[in-house]
Write a protein that binds this DNA or RNA. Structure first.
Length: 465
DNA sequence: CTAGGGTTAG
C-alpha cells in the first residue's frame, strides 16, 4: 500500500529516498505521482539524479511508450544529467519488449558511439533482441563473446539463452544447455525453472515439464504465481480444463496474488469452455482488485463481449481503449473480426479487416481465416474461395474451413481437390474434416475416389516424423 | 533498472 508522504517528510528526503519513492510509484504504475514527487523534491531542494531518470525511463518504456521514454531522456539532458549505460539498457530493453528491434540495435550502436562501455546487461538486451529477431546464431555469438570476455555472465544471461532457444524452436538445445549449467554448478533460479517449464509446455512435452516442476519443488524454491500461471496455461492449452481449474483452486487456496496475467489466463480458458458467466465474475474481480487493464486484458474482455454476442458493448469498448490512450493491436482487431463473423455480420467483418490492413500494413492470417470461415458459414463459399485463392499466405485453418463447408454443400470433388492441395503444401488437416470428405465421396457413390484419396492421405503421413 | 507467465481462427 503506498502512502502519501507528508511535506515535512519530503523535505528531509535525500535523493536516495526520493528514488526509492519514485521507484515504488513507478512499480505501481502511478507515473503522475512519481512526477509529482520529483517536482516536490526540486521545490524542496532534493535534486533528481541519474538513477531517478533511469527509473523513469524504464517505467515510461513499460507503461507508456518508447517515445514517452525519449522525452524523459530529453528532460534528463536538459537537467544536465548525462545518460549512462543503464539509461541505454533500459531503452534497449524497452524497444525489444515492444518488438522495435531495429531500434534496439540502433540504440546499442548509439551507446557505443557515445563512448559508453556496454555492461553485461547491455549484452543481455542484445541477445534478447537477436532471439526476438529470430537470429539465434547471432545471440549465441554474443553469448560466447560474453563468457569469453572480461565480463561475467549473470543468471539473467542464462535465462535469456534458455528462453531464446525455446522461443526459436530449440527446446532440446535449451534443455541440454540448462543441464550443462547445472553440471557447471549454476543453481537455477525460480525464473529459470519457469522459463524451462514454459518452453517444454509450448513444445507439448508435458512429461518433461512435469519433471522440471518436480525438480523445482525439490530445489527448495517455492513455485510462485508465475509458475502457477504457466502450468495452468499449459493445462488449458492441452485442453485439460478441469486440471487447469484445479491448479487455479490450489493457487487461490495457497493465497497467491493474482495479477493481470493470471486473470487473463483463467478468463480466457473459461471463455473457451463457454463458461462466460464465471469469466465475467473473474473479470469483475480483476477490476475490483485494482488491476489496471492493459491491451491484453482489454482484448480478453473484448473477446468475452464478442463470445456473448454483445457487439455494441464491444464497439464501445474499442472506443474506450483508444480514448484511454492504448493502442489496439492485431489481437484486438482479430477478436472483433471474429466476433462480427460469428454474429453473421460479414459486411462489418470485411470492413474491419480492411481497416486493420490499413492500420497495420501487414495483414493477419488469423483474421483472414476468421473471415474465410465466416463467409463459408454465411453460405458465401464462392466468395470465400475467391478470397482464399487471391492470397499467397495460407495455412491449414482456412483449408479446413473451406473443405468442411464444401462438404456441407455436398461439393465433395471440389473438397477432395482442395484437401489434396493442402497436403501437397505440407499442411495437415483435421481428422474430422478428412472423414467428411472421404465419407461424402463414398456415400455419393464415388467409392474409388474415396479410396484413392485415403491412400494419398496415408502417403502424406509418411513424411511426418 | 533491466530476465520468466496472459489475449485471436478451423
Amino acid at each position: 500500500m503506498m502512502m502519501e508522504l507528508p511535506r515535512r517528510m519530503v523535505r528531509r528526503l535525500s535523493t536516495r529516498l526520493l528514488n526509492i519513492c519514485i521507484y515504488s510509484y513507478c512499480k505501481a504504475h502511478r507515473l503522475e505521482k512519481a512526477e509529482a514527487v520529483i517536482i516536490d523534491g526540486i521545490r524542496l531542494g532534493v535534486l533528481p539524479d541519474v538513477v531517478t531518470y533511469n527509473t523513469l525511463v524504464d517505467a515510461y518504456c513499460r507503461i507508456v511508450s518508447i517515445e514517452a521514454a525519449y522525452s524523459v531522456l530529453g528532460r534528463m539532458k536538459e537537467a544536465g544529467i548525462t545518460p549512462d549505460v543503464i539509461t541505454y539498457n533500459s531503452l534497449i530493453a524497452g524497444a525489444t519488449r515492444k518488438c522495435l528491434l531495429s531500434r534496439s540495435l540502433d540504440l546499442f550502436e548509439e551507446m557505443l558511439q557515445t563512448g559508453l562501455h556496454p555492461d553485461v546487461w547491455s549484452y543481455n538486451c542484445l541477445m534478447h533482441c537477436f532471439f526476438k529477431l529470430g537470429k539465434p546464431d547471432e545471440a549465441n555469438r554474443v553469448f560466447r563473446d560474453v563468457i569469453l570476455s572480461d565480463l561475467s555472465p549473470c543468471p539473467t544471461t542464462f535465462n535469456i539463452m534458455i528462453n531464446g532457444l525455446c522461443k526459436n524452436g530449440y527446446i532440446v538445445n535449451a534443455l541440454s544447455f540448462f543441464r550443462n549449467l547445472q553440471r557447471y554448478g549454476f543453481v537455477p533460479q525460480i525464473v529459470t525453472y519457469n522459463t524451462v517449464i514454459n518452453g517444454l509446455c509450448k513444445a507439448r512435452r508435458l512429461g518433461a515439464a512435469r519433471r522440471i516442476l518436480k525438480e523445482l519443488g525439490e530445489s527448495g524454491h517455492e513455485p510462485n504465481a508465475i509458475t502457477y500461471t504457466t502450468v495452468m496455461k499449459c493445462c488449458f492449452r492441452a485442453k485439460r480444463f478441469e486440471q487447469g481449474l484445479e491448479m487455479l483452486g490450489e493457487m487461490k487456496s495457497k493465497g497467491y496474488t493474482f495479477d493481470g496475467f493470471a486473470y487473463c489466463t483463467v478468463i480466457g480458458a473459461l471463455i473457451k469452455m463457454g463458461r462466460t458467466k464465471e469469466a465475467t465474475d473473474y473479470m469483475e474481480e480483476m477490476v475490483r482488485n485494482g488491476i489496471k487493464l492493459d491491451i491484453v486484458s482489454y482484448n480478453t474482455l473484448l473477446n468475452l463481449y464478442c463470445k456473448e454476442g454483445k457487439l455494441e458493448a464491444a464497439y464501445k469498448l474499442l472506443d474506450e481503449i483508444e480514448r484511454g490512450g492504448l493502442e489496439c493491436d492485431i489481437y484486438t482487431h482479430t477478436i472483433m473480426i471474429d466476433g462480427l463473423c460469428k454474429a453473421g455480420k460479414i459486411e462489418g467483418a470485411l470492413r474491419h479487416l480492411e481497416y486493420m490492413n490499413a492500420m497495420h500494413c501487414d495483414s493477419n492470417l488469423v483474421a483472414f481465416n476468421c473471415v474465410v470461415d465466416g463467409l463459408c458459414k454465411a453460405g458465401l463459399i464462392d466468395q470465400a474461395m475467391k478470397m482464399f485463392k487471391s492470397t499467397e499466405k495460407k495455412d491449414s485453418f482456412a483449408y479446413t474451413s473451406l473443405v468442411h463447408n464444401l462438404c456441407r454443400t455436398r461439393k465433395f470433388h471440389c473438397a477432395s481437390k482442395l484437401l489434396l492441395s493442402c497436403l501437397r503444401n505440407g499442411m495437415k488437416i483435421l481428422k474430422s474434416t478428412q472423414r467428411a470428405v472421404l465419407d461424402g465421396l463414398r456415400y455419393s457413390g464415388f467409392t474409388g475416389e474415396s479410396k484413392k484419396l485415403r491412400s494419398k492421405i496415408r502417403m502424406a503421413q509418411l513424411i511426418r516424423y
